[in-house]
């Protein structure tokens, strides 16, 4: 068990963390690349900085929607993200690990804050999952991974919370710790290749949305050519 934990903490962590970082860098670069191509094709050469910024901010802080459209769901989503981002990065134990491995550390969340945020992440994660299941309109536009992700993301939070806050026998503790590490590592691997990649693509997506929808001049001919219907009446 100890050796399995060591493996999960050592080489496996390095592998999955590297896949996450490199994979995110890859999708980021590919997106920029596609963006540049779209921009070169676009008829309108202005870059909508302002629009992108406001839309991104609207997505991050959904105040407007919170007030008039599914307020509880929007608030849950926001609070879920707060814990999701803060706890893994600023937990004292995680910082200790980084300190031991790389020699760099940063200030940590106070213990009770970390516990509170962990619990809030678990609760709001379940809430947005329920919100998705409960709404017919949300179900209509959901894919399989949309149901899976909220549950998937709270697994390391639950196991981590239990590890830290309960007195357990070593065998149970080690099993929970292994669950904690392995579930986080599965998330690392899947992260760049699924919708969670929005953690780095967030502002880009808004920019692409606005730029890519400006069709270049005479794009209709290219479409017709590709579809093999050149000259056919529309």
């Amino acid at each position: 068990m100890e050796s399995l934990l060591e493996f999960a903490r050592g080489p496996l962590f390095r592998l999955t963390f590297a896949i996450m970082l490199l994979g995110l860098a890859r999708v980021f670069i590919l997106d920029i690349w596609g963006l540049v191509e779209a921009y070169n094709r676009a008829g309108d050469k202005s870059i909508p900085w302002r629009l992108t910024l406001t839309r991104t901010l609207e997505w991050i802080f959904p105040v407007k929607r919170m007030l008039n459209h599914r307020p509880f769901y929007s608030l849950s989503a926001f609070l879920f993200h707060v814990g999701l981002i803060l706890v893994p990065v600023f937990l004292f134990a995680h910082i200790q690990l980084w300190q031991a491995a790389l020699g760099v550390g940063w200030s940590a969340l106070p213990r009770n804050w970390a516990d509170l945020l962990t619990l809030s992440t678990i609760i709001f994660g379940l809430a947005i999952w329920a919100g998705r299941i409960g709404s017919r309109r949300a179900r209509a536009i959901s894919r399989k991974q949309d149901y899976l992700w909220p549950l998937m993301l709270i697994v390391p939070f639950v196991s981590g919370y239990l590890c830290v806050n309960t007195s357990l026998s070593p065998a149970v503790y080690q099993t929970l710790m292994l669950t904690h590490i392995l579930s986080a590592e599965i998330i690392f691997v899947l992260l760049p290749f699924t919708k969670i990649a929005h953690c780095v693509l967030m502002p880009l997506s808004q920019l692409i949305m606005t730029i890519a929808w400006k069709f270049p001049a005479r794009v209709d001919e290219d479409v017709a050519t590709t579809l093999g219907k050149k000259g056919a009446p529309v």
Partner: peptide, 13 residues
């Protein structure tokens, strides 16, 4: 780029 990134991650590990 997928092939490259995955192999690079394995190398790092």
């Amino acid at each position: 780029s997928f092939a490259f990134v995955m192999a690079l991650a394995v190398g790092v590990a």
